[in-house]
Design a protein around this nucleic acid. Sequence first.
DNA 1: CCCATTACTTACTTTTTTTATAGTACCCTA
DNA 2: TAGGGTACTATAAAAAAAGTAAGTAATGGG
Lengths: 124, 124
Amino acid sequence: MGQVKESSTNFENRKIMNDACPEVYAASILGTQWTLAICSYLILGKHRFGELRKKIPGITERMLTLKLRELEQQQIVKRTVFAEVPPRVEYELTKIGKDLAPLIAQLDAWGRKHKKLVNSTKYA
Amino acid sequence: MGQVKESSTNFENRKIMNDACPEVYAASILGTQWTLAICSYLILGKHRFGELRKKIPGITERMLTLKLRELEQQQIVKRTVFAEVPPRVEYELTKIGKDLAPLIAQLDAWGRKHKKLVNSTKYA
DNA sequence: CCCATTACTTACTTTTTTTATAGTACCCTA
DNA sequence: TAGGGTACTATAAAAAAAGTAAGTAATGGG
């Protein structure tokens, strides 16, 4: 829950759902734009900031920064800064981050299946 | 992708990612607010509109309608209208909708684990 | 001294999603 | 004939998320 106003109805609603339903909580973490793409690359291994930016088409530096910071706060990603010039920062998944792998595989499988279904019925 | 402007950068970005990554595509379907909560209830069985509204705390009729329509378009939910007064409309999962069950179970498992971890380190 | 490199910030603007509130149609019952 | 139940719609506003564009810092090399 990035920048949610604690006074908003939206905040209340999410809080209640997230507290009551772990699956909703998990989906709300993974379902925002760019987040899962980043995780998918990090599952393949450690990446520098610039590497991620190059691999993820269309992402801006701002968005990449925001999402990485969010993932870091959520303890899904670990950030390591090297005291060099020019700077070098490496990102890698934490233990729980790595635990996403089978979940991502399932999402992938269901996604393929669904896409296939929808496309096959689109013009039927 | 509910009400996205086809001319926006956002539309372009989502399109590219969704086309390339089925897991991102799947997560973007399941990750928006209310969607997974609705599916979770429907996995338990057929529900009427009003039943869902009562079970899902905080949801407005408008949101419930919107999300159900979206799920219907995505062929995840089937809608059946009975020609009665007062009206009766039933919602149930389609085949691919039911295929979400194991995915939801995994989301649930990961969500619990993550929540536990975050809470345990919060004040450490 | 100027430029390149890398990983960001900052200050906005635009787009998308969610919420609020007030209807509507239909028939049945009291 | 007024009110109740059900499943919605319409319109507007608020909130959240994403995108744009222009910096910044530090240092080594030319």
